[in-house]
Amino acid sequence: MDLILWRHAEAEDGERDAKRALTSKGRRQAARVGAWLDHQLPEHCRVLVSPAVRCLQTADALRRHYTIHEALNTDSTAERMLEVCGWPGNRFPALLIGHQPLLGELASLIVTGAPQPWKIRKASVFWIKGSDAEDSTPFIRLAVGPELIGKMR
């Protein structure tokens, strides 16, 4: 199973965290990364999204069907997020659109076995390749920020 982590794009500042919308820069970031991801993701990839406005707007840029899941919200845990996507046993890849520090903790938990304070920057993608018939160890397939996506086309 592939697990792709996409941190929401740049959002406005504000006290009502769940209602913060993307900035104009964030909308450009989401559009660039979403268009690129759409060409990279398998057709049968599940897309799971935090209910926060900035995550929903980031997901909209992908232009694929997605499911809103409370387990991806800011008050969740890396373990709960793994449970929701079915890592590592689900045979279908999953794209999770969520928040820091949870996405960084989730990535480090899979790669090192313990949650660490890894940082995934805004609008960045962290792609983990799960075990396959040849190797049972997950590995980092890709880690890229929005500033490089346009150069990778």
Rank of each mutant, 00 (worst) to 15 (best):
residue 4 I to R: 01
residue 7 R to P: 07
residue 7 R to A: 08
residue 7 R to K: 13
residue 12 E to R: 06
residue 12 E to T: 04
residue 14 G to R: 08
residue 15 E to M: 15
residue 16 R to I: 13
residue 17 D to R: 07
residue 17 D to Q: 10
residue 21 A to S: 14
residue 22 L to M: 10
residue 22 L to F: 07
residue 25 K to Q: 07
residue 26 G to L: 15
residue 28 R to A: 15
residue 29 Q to I: 09
residue 32 R to G: 13
residue 33 V to A: 12
residue 33 V to I: 14
residue 34 G to C: 12
residue 36 W to E: 09
residue 37 L to W: 08
residue 45 C to W: 11
residue 48 L to Q: 12
residue 52 A to M: 11
residue 59 A to T: 09
residue 59 A to I: 12
residue 64 R to A: 02
residue 64 R to N: 00
residue 68 I to N: 01
residue 70 E to H: 12
residue 70 E to I: 09
residue 71 A to W: 01
residue 76 S to H: 04
residue 77 T to I: 04
residue 77 T to H: 02
residue 77 T to Y: 03
residue 78 A to P: 09
residue 81 M to Y: 02
residue 81 M to L: 15
residue 81 M to V: 04
residue 86 G to F: 01
residue 87 W to P: 01
residue 93 P to E: 00
residue 93 P to Q: 03
residue 93 P to C: 02
residue 94 A to F: 02
residue 99 H to E: 06
residue 102 L to V: 10
residue 105 E to S: 03
residue 105 E to W: 00
residue 107 A to M: 04
residue 110 I to T: 00
residue 113 G to C: 00
residue 114 A to Q: 04
residue 124 S to W: 13
residue 127 W to M: 04
residue 129 K to I: 02
residue 136 S to F: 08
residue 140 I to C: 03
residue 140 I to K: 03
residue 141 R to L: 04
residue 142 L to Q: 12
residue 146 P to H: 12
residue 149 I to D: 02
residue 150 G to E: 14
residue 150 G to F: 02
